[in-house]
Design a protein around this nucleic acid. Structure first.
Length: 456
RNA sequence: UCCCCAGUAGCUCAGUUGGCAGAGCGGGUGGCUGUUAACCACCAUGUCCGCGGUUCGAGUCCGUGCUGGGGAGCCA
């Protein structure tokens, strides 16, 4: 007999004989002549109720089953005589695969996220984290579906990289040298013969492929060695980076908006039950937030206008609002949460606060950069039109103290058939936070890596 | 890295002016019941985060370290 998944059985409308399920016991309630077992196999949020009659030959063992124990149940799917479920399984046999000791840390009650983080290996067995990681899986699929439907090619850009100055923060060093050899600091003797790091972005590689395959994207792990201790940062996270040839900043912003909406709708359509858990127990305003994302269009606002709005707001900000300064978290939150109350795209930032590869605007002051800000999280997407003019690129690299010889292949792409092109990076975990209302990034990734914490 | 808050039973937390260590849940035992985070009764549970200090006496006050959380910077 073939094992059936519980999500399939719960979709059934009529009784049937000979079903086989395997899963873990979530709770047990004993009655006079039988016991109610609730079993979950991770295929969906709901448990299935099992009726274990006292006539079963191992009934004594069944009534001492503990939470977390693994069981294999054969029986018939029948109409439930109780309230709360339409169908249940009348067990013909219950095989105990393994018995969990009473020290099993997960109890039949709500645990705090902080406690569950200390047992990250067990937390996917809870309703909330089970739902989270089913949504995470579905969101990954949705990303591929979005791009595939638009004929984007999926590129596997390198995890290990030799470029050490991509301008996106501190990097993790990759080496095969022993600690005492490392002190000599001679990279020529190292595995790759030069300084090597984990990637902080696949962008530069993706650009090369956009200039060959047209529309491409990457979706993979990214590493930042920043010592940042916030609810929005982890050292290892996943990033989605589309890159499009023959595309300007306007097209870039449009794609960012379209993608955010598509992903939101896809999850609402395909993970309704799991999302409902978050709407009910995690963030009461979740559905309203998700509505604002799919309903109207995102607001597009030049950086200079954002500065004006902030200055005229009459609000006292901790950090000075001045053209040329980067927008601080408090400014971004004010714009997205209080002033517009919906996603905002800010574009055309001053060149001095942005990296060399962003395209210089005609004003000579700003670059074609854009950030998508969403209520509750802040920046979820950062992107730009890339500088495709070789002479302007060289000037910018010089201005920002970059060595052209380190980027010879990048510069080469502007030499041969250069075209306007654009792209952006979406923080996959931040998207999950937006979709679930979860406030800490450590709770949307299976085993979070943060400064001083790599237990699992 | 900086600022603020917290650390007491397996979990969530209370603990008065510095004076015998507590509750709910979970666990164990028994009972009741087509039950729904079942219910009722009884039982057991402790390095009060570590180290040092003040005091007749510290869970409580002081110093310090560690861990966790919130915020800031950096960013996705």
């Amino acid at each position: 007999m073939k094992r059936e998944k519980i999500y399939q059985l719960l979709k059934e409308l009529s009784p049937s004989d000979n079903v086989l399920i395997k899963g873990w016991l979530r709770t047990r309630r004993d009655s006079k002549n039988f016991s109610f077992l609730e079993v979950n196999d991770g295929s969906c949020l709901k448990n299935i109720q099992i009726i274990a009659d006292s006539a079963l030959d191992n009934y004594t063992e069944i009534t001492s089953l503990t939470i977390g124990s693994a069981v294999c149940i054969r029986g018939s799917l029948v109409k439930s005589q109780g309230k709360g479920q339409t169908l249940e399984i009348q067990a013909q046999s219950i095989e105990i695969i393994s018995l969990a000791p009473e020290s099993y840390p997960l109890q039949k009650k709500r645990h705090t996220d902080e406690f569950l983080r200390t047992i990250a290996h067990l937390r996917p067995r809870t309703n909330k984290y089970g739902a989270m990681f089913r949504i995470r899986s579905e969101l990954s699929y949705a990303i591929h579906k979005f791009f595939r439907d638009k004929a984007f090619q999926y590129i596997h850009t390198p995890i290990i990289t030799g470029s050490d100055c991509e301008g996106a923060g501190e990097m993790f060093r990759v080496t095969t040298l022993k600690p005492d050899q490392k002190i000599k600091n001679d990279c020529r003797k190292d595995f790759f013969g030069q300084e090597t790091n984990l990637t902080v972005s696949g962008q530069l590689s993706a650009e090369m492929f956009a200039l060959a395959l047209g529309d491409v994207y990457t979706f993979g792990p990214t590493f930042r060695a920043e010592n940042s201790n916030t609810s929005r940062h982890v050292a290892e996270f996943w990033m989605v980076e589309p890159e499009m040839a023959f595309c300007d900043l306007e097209g870039d912003m449009d794609l960012a908006e379209e993608m955010t909406k598509f992903l939101t709708m896809h999850i609402l359509d395909n993970c309704a039950e799991d999302i409902q858990l978050f709407a009910k127990f995690v963030d009461k305003k979740l559905m309203a937030t998700l509505e604002t994302i799919i309903a109207g269009s995102f607001l597009k606002l030049p950086y200079s206008d954002a500065i004006d709005i902030l200055n005229k707001s009459g609000k006292k900000f901790e950090h000075e609002v001045k053209f040329g300064n980067d927008l601080q978290t408090e400014h971004e939150r004010y714009l997205a949460e209080q002033y517009f109350k919906k996603p905002v795209i800010i574009y055309n930032y001053p060149k001095d606060i942005k990296p060399f590869y962003m395209r210089m605007n005609d004003d000579g002051i700003t670059v074609a950069a854009m950030d998508v800000l969403v209520p509750g999280i802040g920046e979820i997407i950062g992107g730009s039109q890339r500088e495709e003019r070789p002479e302007v690129l060289a000037e910018r690299m010089n201005e920002l103290g970059q060595f052209p010889e380190d980027y010879w292949w990048y510069i080469d792409s502007r030499k041969y058939g250069t075209v306007p092109h654009s792209g952006f990076g979406l923080g996959f975990e931040r998207m999950l936070m937006l979709l679930t209302g979860v406030k800490n990034i450590r709770d949307v990734i299976p085993f979070p890596r943060t400064p001083g914490s790599i237990e699992f």
